[in-house]
Design a protein around this nucleic acid. Sequence first.
DNA 1: CTGAAAGCGCTTACAG
DNA 2: CTGAAAGCGCTTACAG
Lengths: 355, 355
Amino acid sequence: MTQAPNDKAARLIDVARRAEVSRATAARALGGYGLVTEATRERVMAAAAELNYRVNELARSMRSGRSLTIGVVVADISNSFFTSAIRAIIETASGAGYQILVLNTDDDIEKERNAVRVLIEKRVDGLIVVPASQNEIEHLIVQSEPEVPVVLLDRRVDSDEIDFVTTDDRAAAGEAIRHFAAAGHVRIGLLVATASVEKYSPTMPDHVVGTVRDRVEGAMAAFAELELAASPQWTRFCHSSVEIAHEAMTEILTSPEPPTAILATNEEMALGALGAAQELGFEISEDLSIIAFDEAPWTLVFRPPLSVVKRPVAKLGATAVELLLKKIEDNSYRSSRILNAQLVVRQSVTAPRAR
Amino acid sequence: MTQAPNDKAARLIDVARRAEVSRATAARALGGYGLVTEATRERVMAAAAELNYRVNELARSMRSGRSLTIGVVVADISNSFFTSAIRAIIETASGAGYQILVLNTDDDIEKERNAVRVLIEKRVDGLIVVPASQNEIEHLIVQSEPEVPVVLLDRRVDSDEIDFVTTDDRAAAGEAIRHFAAAGHVRIGLLVATASVEKYSPTMPDHVVGTVRDRVEGAMAAFAELELAASPQWTRFCHSSVEIAHEAMTEILTSPEPPTAILATNEEMALGALGAAQELGFEISEDLSIIAFDEAPWTLVFRPPLSVVKRPVAKLGATAVELLLKKIEDNSYRSSRILNAQLVVRQSVTAPRAR
DNA sequence: CTGAAAGCGCTTACAG
DNA sequence: CTGAAAGCGCTTACAG
C-alpha cells in the first residue's frame, strides 16, 4: 500500500490508494456527486482527512475549463469608494464560489491593457474593470476567443458592446448644482477627476469616460436651466490625486473672482479642495460651500459635516458580480444597470457670505 | 493545415500547426528559451499573433508546479491602512511576475480558516495574512505538505514558526503617551482595536494579537515610567468598527472623570472617537487631545490636523512580498522585520484646559 | 536545431 | 456501484 510521499501534497491518487479504490471513485466520493456506497464514501473521506488532502483547483480548472476566478482591474485602489466596491465584489463573488484577482492600474491605460492580458492568461472566467479611458477600449472587447465576459464598474464608455454598472451621476450632479443655487450661490466651480489629463486643465480633455462626462453635463444642464454662468475660471479637470486637486484648487481660489461653491467629483478632489481652501484661510461653508461625490467615512466627522452625493457602492459592486455571473453562465446575456445616487444634505453648504 | 476552431481560444498546438512545427518548438519560440532558428521563431510568433494566442497559465502552472499567485488574507479591507498595504503588495508582486488573490475576513477566524483553505486549493505559491487571532493559528502553520510559505502582515502572533513584518508599535505607543504627558495630560485613555472582542470592553481580552498587546504594553510602560495612573475607566478594547468605537468613546467621555487625551489605535477608532467627542460638544485638542495610529489621508485636512503615528505602510507591504518571495525560493529561509513607526506632531494635542 | 512522448492532477463519459 | 482510460494545455528531458 502506497503512502503519499512526505514532502509533497497528497493527490487524489494517494487518497484513492489509501482507501483502496480507483481515482474515479475517490473523486466521486470527495466531490459528492455520482454514485458511491456509504461505506466507500466514508473510507475515502477518512483517507483524505488522514492525508490532509486538498484538491488541486488548478487541475480541476484545467479539466473543467472554469477557473472560478474573477479578475478585477481597478483604476485607483487608494480611493475608498473603490475599496468599498471591492469589498462587496469579494463578498458577493465568494458567496458564489468565485475568488478575486485584483490588479491596480493607477489610471494608466498601458497598465490596464497589461492587466487584462495577464488575467486572460490566468483564464479568469470574467472581468470587472474600472476603465481609464473612453476610447482606448479594444483590449476590453476583442481580448480573446471565446470572449471573456466583461462588466465595467462605475465608469461606462460609449461602446454598445460592453456592459456596465454605474450610477445616475448626471442627475446627481444636477441636484448638487441646484442645491448650491438654492442656497444663493451663483459662482459655482467644479473639480472633476479624470484619468485623461496629466495634471489639471480648465477645459474638458478628449476621451473622458462617460461617467465623467455625465457629471459635467449634469452640472452644465443645471447651470443652463438656472441661467447661471459656468466659467472655466472656476473649473478644473484633474488627474485623480489629492496633490493635483490641491494645486488646481489653489489656482481657482486665488483667481480674481473665486467661486463660492465647489462640487468635487471624488474623494481625492474633496481632500485637495479642502486642503487648499483651509490653507488659504477660507472657512468651509461660510467662505466656500462644498459638495463631494461619495460618502467617504471621514466626511461625517469633518466639521462642518460634508454634504455628499451618496452612491450605493456596495450594491454597485454586488450588481457587477451578479451581472458578470449571468454572463458567464450565458455568453449571450447582455445587461447594464444605472443605480440611483442621492444627495445627502449635511452642513457644508450655506448661503455665500455677502460681499 | 488545421486552423484554430473559431469558438475556442487558440492553443499551443494551433500555433504549432499554423507555423508547421511541433508543440515543443512552438513552446521554445514563444517562451524564448532553448534553441530555435530565427526563421522558425518568426514563423511561430507570426502564427501566434494571427491566432491571438494567449498562453494558458493554468496549464503552465500545472506543469511547472508554481502558480505565480500570492494569496492575501486581510482582516479589514475597508481600513485605508490595509488598502495602502495591498496597493504596495500588488505593485511589488506584479513587478516580480506574481498576481494577487485577495480575500477579506472581517476579523472572523472562521472566514480566515476558510480563506486559507481556498487559497491553498488554488495552489498559491505563498500567503500574506493579517491574522485575526493570537492563538487560533494552526491553519497558518500546518496547512499543507509541502508547507506553503506564510508571512504575517502588520500583526504578529507569538509563534516562532511564523514570520512577520510589522512596526515597532510598542515604542510608538510609548512616544505618543509621552507626548500627551509633556503637554500636561494626566488622564490619558486608550481606544484599542482588536478582533478579540465582540463589541467593547474595559479590560484586555485574551488572545489579542501581539501587535495589539505591544501597543497597550508600550502605553502602560510609559504610564509607569511617568508615574501616571492607567484607569480602565478611560480605556476600551473595541471591535474594529467606527460605530463601536463611537459607542465606547461616548461611554468614556460621559464617565464622571473623563480623560483629557485619547490614543486611538487605528482609523476606525479615530473616526469613532472624533464622532463621539464632537457629538458631546468636546472641542478637539482644547477639550480632548487625540493621537491616532496611521496617517489616513483625511487626518491632514481635519481641523485641527491630527497628530498621528505614521507607519511605513507601503514599505510594510513591499517588505512582506520580498520576504515571501525569498521563502518561496528557499523554503528554509526565515526572517521577520520590525519597521520603525514615527510620531508626527500636528495640532490635535494641546495642554488640557484648566479645570 | 527539432520532434515524439511523458506527465502535472484532476474529471467524466463509457463499459462492466 | 466501480474502474480503466482519455484528455484539459502546457513543458521538458530525451533522442535524433
